[in-house]
Amino acid sequence: MRRAPKRITSFDVAREAGVSQTTVSFVLNDTQGQTIPEETRRRVLDAAKRLDYRPRASARSLAAGRSDVVLLALPGVPISTNLSRFIEQFAGALAEHGLSLVTHLAEGHGRPLPDLCAAVDASAVVSLIPFDEATAEALHRAGAEVVLGAGKQATAELQEIGRIQARHITSLRRENLGYALPGEHSSEWRVQERLRGVAAVCAEQGLAEPIALEVELDAAKAAVAVDQWVRASVTGVCAYNDETAMAVLAGMHLRGLRAPDDLAVIGVGDVAAAQVSIPALSTIGFDYAEQGRESAQAVAALLGIAVGDPAAAVDVLARPRLILRASA
């Protein structure tokens, strides 16, 4: 995370093009009735492009001279109950600091995130996935004072989730592991980091790498993955999330297999249905509500409108915990 450089304004464009701000306004707004030479128009447009200038429309601002908008960039995944709980608490805690939340599916097919940042006049942009450097710079130029993407601590957290899963499964004397990849609607970064955590534990214990197979939310298709694991003598499966783990259980049921006797299965998320799956699903749980509140506090601290240590609040860990039930 880096503090924003001075945002690009129409004054900067005017200076770059060697014209007045009025001329810049006429050109960028395509104002009718103005006789502006084509060479001047082109110079203004080229200057705006070079500076990566985006017009901002904001009718509200905080006393500190910033908007009250925080833009949350979500990965292109279904909005689960746990994610909804995080967003609800994040929005509520931001409101306590006079900030408003706008959400955006960052991996969708809508307008680019920097354009949206400028359009809603966001003072802060928060992401549940990492920002590359070019995107972070573009967000700063679009006016965001705080750009907070998932960083090193978030990566470590995702890997720790996989580590907790693998350590538990191997503690049951299951030495050949499988990994159930989600069939669709997932963030590739999150998937791969969790898988790396599982693979790291296998390497540390001198075990073979986990056999990673895609498991769709369809019992018959999941059963095909189960068949492959059985043929490879896999005895424990770590799943990317609870939904994928429950698909594995459904595939096992079609094949007459039982958890944990034939395959020990563990998920991630502790969704409500995990408690009533057959058998009840062992999983990794989080305090999503607390994570939402702490994330809001981090944003407010970084904007300088709340007490706190911004440096210590850049990455908020969800503190994963093992929840033992019948499946593993």
Rank of each mutant, 00 (worst) to 15 (best):
Asp115Tyr: 10
Asp262Trp: 03
Ala122Pro: 09
Glu290Ile: 02
Gly256Ala: 04
Phe11Lys: 13
Ile266Asn: 08
Thr103His: 07
Ala180Cys: 09
Leu317Asn: 10
Trp229Phe: 14
Gln291Leu: 15
Met1Thr: 14
Leu113Ala: 00
Ala311Arg: 14
Arg60Phe: 14
Gly269Glu: 08
Ala142Thr: 06
Ala298Tyr: 05
Ala300Leu: 09
Leu158Asn: 14
Leu45Ile: 04
Ala264Arg: 00
Ala57Ser: 12
Arg7Thr: 15
Ala259Ile: 05
Lys6Thr: 14
Phe11Cys: 08
Ala57Met: 09
Ser58Thr: 10
Ala301Asp: 10
Lys221Asp: 09
Glu133Asp: 14
Val120His: 04
Ala119Thr: 13
Glu209Ala: 15
Ser20Leu: 03
Gly267Thr: 08
Gly162Arg: 10
Gln34Met: 15
Leu72Pro: 06
Ile278Pro: 01
Arg190Leu: 12
Val201Pro: 01
Val230Asp: 05
Val276Ala: 13
Gly292Cys: 04
Thr283Leu: 14
Ala280Pro: 15
Asp287Leu: 07
Ala328Met: 03
Asp68Trp: 08
Val271Trp: 14
Thr103Phe: 04
Ala144Phe: 09
Ala95Met: 02
Asp270Arg: 13
Ala296Phe: 06
Ile36His: 01
Met246Leu: 13
Phe86Ala: 02
Leu257Asp: 01
Arg196Cys: 05
Glu157Met: 11
His185Arg: 14
Leu181Ser: 07
Arg50Cys: 08
Ala245Val: 08
Asn82Trp: 02
Ala118Leu: 07
Val271Asn: 15
Pro37Trp: 03
Ile164Arg: 15
Leu99Arg: 02
Thr40Gly: 03
Val125His: 03
Asp12Lys: 00
Ser127Arg: 02
Arg7Glu: 13
Arg2Pro: 12
Arg325Trp: 00
Pro37Thr: 02
